[in-house]
């Protein structure tokens, strides 16, 4: 593939990063990894990805804070974000109904269902 789409995987658990990286890499995507919201922001600033998978509970900077910063910054708000989290089901409704931010483009509960996340990724970056 000449110009592969880039996906930033943000999660504090190395196992999840490796799993998603392998899964997405096998589908021809280029993957980047960040272990928390802080590092993720640096990666975005270094070169915006085409899509982000985002964990919520992380040290340094939470996924919520990172999501909020991304979605309120004109430079980055067009980048689709799939929230991939073990936080309870209520979180989806919570984050989708906040006045300050738009709803996330995708939402996947852990443990990750491979088909579910691949379908979402494909539909968000054609």
């Amino acid at each position: 593939m000449p110009n592969p789409k880039r996906i930033l995987i943000v999660d504090d658990e190395p196992d999840i990063r490796t799993y998603l990286s392998t899964l997405l890499g096998d589908q021809g995507y280029e993957t980047l990894q960040a272990k928390d919201g802080e590092e993720a922001m640096q990666k975005v600033q270094a070169g915006p990805p085409d899509l982000i998978t985002l964990d919520i509970s992380m040290p340094e900077k939470s996924g919520i804070r990172f999501f909020r910063e991304m979605k309120t910054d004109d430079r980055w708000k067009h980048i689709p974000i799939i929230i991939v989290t073990g936080v309870s089901e209520d979180f989806k409704k919570f984050i989708s109904s906040r006045h300050q931010v738009p709803a996330p483009e995708g939402f996947v509960s852990k443990p990750i269902n491979q088909e579910e996340i691949m379908n979402l990724v494909h539909s968000l970056i054609k």
Partner: peptide, 23 residues
């Protein structure tokens, strides 16, 4: 282990509450 049975760690909890404080 994480801090809450919702799965929210301390930062996530604070950041969630910040939304509602503003709202």
């Amino acid at each position: 282990r994480v801090g809450s049975s919702t799965g929210m760690n301390p930062l996530a909890a604070k950041d969630s509450v910040e939304f509602i404080q503003e709202e």
